[in-house]
Amino acid sequence: MSSRLSYYLQRSVRFLSPAPPVIANRYPRLHNVLWVTKAAGYALLFGHLITTYGFSYTGTWGVSMLPSIASSGDFVLISKFYRHGRGLEVGDLVTYKHPYHGDQGLYGIKRLVGLPGDFVLRDSPGAKEGVMIQVPQGHCWIVGDNLPLSRDSRMFGPIPLGLIKGKVIAKSQLFGRDFKWMKNPLQDVADDMHDEEDETI
């Protein structure tokens, strides 16, 4: 080993090495207890920060999103950068704190159908007279993919964006099997009709 390399090695070792282990030498049991407490504290601290402001990965249940997410056994990766509805687009899958049971810790996943100012269908397509209503300021309209078996904005109305906690960016089976990115399925309005007209003319 060249002397220069060993010099840098020593330097980095000295730089990274902790203080002399006084407690570990004199009171090994206390040292263990302290280490576990410290590790638990760090896990709590950074676990909270990551799952509130970064990403979280949880299991889901329920039939309301059936073609997109299975009724049980699917796990979703949620990006919390979209909390409070920041940067969301119509067609995204969002997680929200439930407006009725949210204080008991219930969260849901639905598809974002309307943002503030958008006009949305109040009931299921073809169910009633087809009233369109405007989503109020600071609210959003969320509907499940499984229309007959979903309890969503068609029942509780628009919900405040403050209840939106994140956006589903990927889904998988347990431990990341069948990992799949979630894409926004919304398509631009096709221009096919005009093309056909042009052809006939």
Partner: peptide, 20 residues
Amino acid sequence: PTNNIKRGDIVSYPSPHNPD
């Protein structure tokens, strides 16, 4: 915050008109 909430309590929440 909503455990045993009573009438007359003062609460804070993100405004429904402006969530930030």
